[in-house]
Design a protein around this nucleic acid. Sequence first.
DNA 1: TTCTTGATCGGT
DNA 2: CCGATCAAGAAT
Length: 199
Amino acid sequence: MNVYTITLRPDVTPLPLTFHARAPVKLARALLGMDLVHVSRGRVRSGRIVETEAYLGPHDLACHSSKGRTARTEVMFGPPGHAYLFLVYGMHLCFNVVTGDGAAVLIRALAPGEGLGGLRTDGPGRLTRALALGLALNEAPLDRPPLFIARGVPVPARHVEVSPRIGVDYAGEWASRPLRFHDRRSAFVSRSPGRHSGR
DNA sequence: TTCTTGATCGGT
DNA sequence: CCGATCAAGAAT
């Protein structure tokens, strides 16, 4: 037992890679209520997934894989359950779970779990920073430390609100497709553009 | 090699 | 509304 060994609570068990092997919309719904856990230098940081978006594959013009197989998108064509992390706007990392065939699910918001020191997790860029994720975790399998998804409490369909994906206005018709999912009971869902402070 | 573009966020 | 800031892809 050294500083690089940590003990996770026994109820925190990584889901198998096969959990993520399903159609992206199905996974986007199934991931709501699951926990994202990062173990780094003996510290555990985690949060419960409350908002996701499905990126369907090469035919989906909002999906990076629609630009073809490149060094960056190659991981999305690999086996399900691996991390797809990329840098946007030069300063924010976005974290996705690969489902295969060029598709992935973007994690957009978490309800804070442990080890976050009060940092906000409502937003794709904020949550990667709060969990201290780095680009080095790109392509990492999500069924084991240092980065994994654990079974939490599934969100029943009646509590899932569906809406268009955020920030993909360049994608034409695909921008308005209902591929964003969030737990309507959660206070930690990201703020949508156009949604003013109140209401 | 240089140019362009963002699956965002925090500050006006 | 506006601009920060940089990896990856495309153009040169």
